[in-house]
Simulated scan of single mutants.
Amino acid sequence: MDVELRASDDDRNRVVDELHQHTAAGRLTLDEFSDRAGAVWTARTLGDLASLTRDLPPLPRPAGNADPVGHGRRELLMVFAAAALTLLLLGGFLAVTR
């Protein structure tokens, strides 16, 4: 990483998210989080951003190729399919009993 490269808003958002996770884990107090998050928005370079998390351990990566969003979509698709099948069966039953 070239520490002199200019930071983007995505870079800043990623660091704020990381700081939030460290706060939730108890590594930072709310005051520390507030101070560092404020500094994120004034950071100009990737090096400035890196200095805000240098004393924190790396966050664990999600296991494997876990995709919680994709998993949620599959569950929603299954619920939709079950509802559609139920409606078809109910429509067939009503057609037969009339």
Score class of each variant (00 low, 15 high):
S8P: 03
A95P: 00
L85S: 15
L59P: 04
L46Q: 10
H71L: 05
A83T: 09
S8I: 07
L87R: 02
R36Y: 11
N13S: 08
A39V: 03
L5P: 00
N65I: 01
W41D: 11
M1L: 07
L30Y: 11
R73P: 01
E4F: 09
D67W: 05
M1P: 04
L5W: 01
P68D: 06
D2Q: 02
E18S: 14
T29Q: 08
L56Y: 09
D31Q: 07
L85R: 09
G72N: 05
A39R: 15
L87G: 08
L76F: 07
N65Y: 03
G26T: 08
A83C: 12
A43V: 02
S8R: 13
R73K: 14
V40W: 11
A82V: 13
L89V: 15
S51H: 01
A82C: 06
V40K: 12
G92D: 00
A82N: 04
R74W: 10
T53H: 02
P62S: 06
D31F: 04
P62M: 09
P62K: 05
E18V: 05
L87C: 12
T86I: 12
T53E: 01
T45F: 06
D11E: 04
V96H: 12
S8K: 13
A84S: 10
M78G: 00
T86H: 05
R44Q: 08
A63H: 04
L49G: 04
R36G: 02
L88K: 00
P68I: 12
A95D: 03
S34G: 13
A37H: 12
G91S: 14
A82L: 15
G91R: 05
V3T: 09
